[in-house]
């Protein structure tokens, strides 16, 4: 996986098999996948009459298109603010639970300095996925993280007119 395009001071695109909510690391930047789209696929014009397996077998010259993940830079690996973005073409890795735990626990204390920014600028589901992932990685902080999760849900409910 590699960085495809820089979109703004804290957003960039990555080519690769990623899902919304996945946490990634490139250079010393921690980022989260906020959306996914398919770029330049020729399948769409043929998919109404053929299954995608048949397209691969019978129309192999069609371009499947790149799967592009739009990512938001959250912080550096030392939990500082991001002041520069990765370069185009730089390698991107998925963050494993162990690394995630190591990044967010400083002297045994849980730190999520980017949470407010994430909630303000991104979709609630993305933030929820991040917190669920943290619960998985740092189970001893489950109670605190569940409070954050409840707060996120409350914010979602506040926006719904019943």
């Amino acid at each position: 996986m590699k960085v495809l395009k820089i979109l703004s001071h804290d957003e960039f695109e990555v080519e690769g098999e990623l899902a919304v909510g996945d946490l990634i690391c490139c250079s010393d930047i921690l980022a989260i996948v906020t959306s996914i789209y398919q770029e330049g696929s020729e399948y769409s014009e043929y998919i109404d009459r053929l299954e995608s397996d048949d397209i691969k077998k019978f129309l192999p010259d069609l371009i499947e298109g790149k799967r592009v993940a739009r990512c938001m830079a959250l912080c550096t690996t030392s939990l500082d603010d991001v002041v520069s973005l990765p370069e185009v073409g730089i390698r991107v890795d998925r963050i494993e639970n162990e690394k995630l735990r190591e990044l967010h626990l400083k002297n045994g204390e849980l730190k999520i300095p980017y949470l407010i920014k994430l909630l303000k600028t991104s979709n609630i589901d993305v933030a929820k996925r991040l917190v669920l992932r943290l619960i998985d990685s740092i189970p001893e902080e489950k109670d605190l993280l569940e409070i954050i999760l409840a707060e996120i849900e409350y914010n979602r409910m506040k926006g719904v007119e019943l």
Binding site: K56, K57, F58, L59, P60, D61
Partner: peptide
Amino acid sequence: KVKVWHGEGKKDV
């Protein structure tokens, strides 16, 4: 010149 082997998923241009 586009070559396609239908059913085999092979192609060449």
